[in-house]
């Protein structure tokens, strides 16, 4: 088990994770990050074209190891 830090945010504001989460391997990091992104989307997604939400994962050395992101596109079709 190692501790990973899941920073999250949109283009304007990033919250640095100071607490971290214990994960056993990259598959678990990915699952935790994905669940975090779902919660972030539910809470923070606005109806703004181009809005991007992300979770970026650092390891204990501070190295970035994974980024999960979503981009909202709104297009008028008529």
């Amino acid at each position: 088990m190692a501790r990973f830090y899941f920073d999250s945010g949109d283009r304007d504001l990033t919250f640095e994770d100071e607490i971290g989460v214990e994960c056993a391997g990259l598959a678990e990091v990915r699952r935790a990050g994905f669940e975090g992104l779902i919660d972030l989307t539910r809470e923070s997604l606005k109806s703004v074209d181009g809005q991007q939400l992300f979770v970026e994962v650092r390891d204990e050395n501070g190295d970035k190891i994974m980024r999960l992101s979503l981009l909202l596109r709104v297009k008028l079709l008529k």
């Binding site: 899941f6 999250s8 919250f15 100071e18 669940e35 975090g36 919660d39 972030l40 809470e43």
Partner: peptide, 22 residues
């Protein structure tokens, strides 16, 4: 644990950390 807080709140551990931070 943050996991237990998450289970009480219906939130992921990552989002629990974010909320504590906020």
């Amino acid at each position: 644990t943050q996991a237990a807080l998450g289970d009480a709140l219906g939130l992921s551990t990552v989002h629990v950390n974010r909320m504590l931070q906020e």
